[in-house]
Every structure is written in structure tokens, then in C-alpha cells.
């Protein structure tokens, strides 16, 4: 299970980010806050946390890639690293609407 968790961790971070921003937007809609500032800050903080998690995963994948490993080991590490990289880009892209749309 550890190998699976490592391989899919980056994509999991993306999923957590999307769930988070959706929840923040929905809560902001329900409580009908007059100012969008709190929601924007919440999205910003969540994005920072997810970016940090992705960077940590990338660093971990890089560290593990230096260790000797068989084919499966290399596959696991590269899938995890690529997934974290994709997640990093997708999380930043996904956070843009909060930065741009709410002015």
C-alpha cells in the first residue's frame, strides 16, 4: 500500500485542493459573506499548503531516484515524481480563478 500511496500522492494533493476550493466557494455562497476577501485568503492558504506538499513529494521522489532500484522501484519513483509535478501545475492553474476572478 505504501508504494501505491507514494505513486498517487501527487494526484491526491490535486484532488484535496479541488475539494477544498469547491468547499470554500460553496461555504462562501451559503454564508453569503459581503466581502470575498476571506474566501480568497482561504483559497490562497490552501493552495500554498498544496504547493508545499507537491514540492515535498518532488523532493522525496528526487531523493529516492538517486538510490539503486529495480525496474519497479524506478517506475514507482518516476510515476510519483511526474504525478507531483503535474499536480503542482494543476493546483496553481486551479487557484488562478480565485486570484483573477475576484478582484
Amino acid at each position: 500500500m505504501r508504494a501505491w500511496a507514494f505513486m498517487l500522492a501527487g494526484l491526491g494533493v490535486w484532488a484535496a485542493h479541488l475539494t477544498g476550493v469547491y468547499a470554500i466557494a460553496s461555504i462562501a455562497d451559503v454564508v453569503a459573506v459581503a466581502h470575498v476577501g476571506p474566501a480568497r485568503w482561504a483559497v490562497g492558504l490552501l493552495t500554498l499548503a498544496c504547493v508545499a506538499a507537491d514540492l515535498a513529494l518532488l523532493a522525496s521522489a528526487r531523493r529516492r531516484a538517486r538510490r539503486p532500484a529495480d525496474g519497479l522501484g524506478r517506475f514507482t519513483v518516476s510515476t510519483a515524481g511526474l504525478g507531483a509535478g503535474l499536480s503542482l501545475v494543476a493546483v496553481l492553474w486551479q487557484a488562478l480563478p480565485a486570484a483573477v476572478a475576484i478582484g
Binding site: 479541488l18 476550493v21 469547491y22 466557494a25 460553496s26 462562501a28 455562497d29 470575498v36 474566501a39 503535474l86 494543476a90 492553474w93 486551479q94 488562478l96 480563478p97 480565485a98 483573477v100 476572478a101 475576484i102
Partner: peptide
Amino acid sequence: PVISVGFFSAASMAVSV
């Protein structure tokens, strides 16, 4: 909400990658 729509618009573009 406009902000929700923005998030999902971004994700919809990302899935094409």
C-alpha cells in the same frame, strides 16, 4: 457561484493535458 465555475473551468482545461 462565479468562483466555483472558475475552478471547474480550470480543471476542465487541465483534464485535456
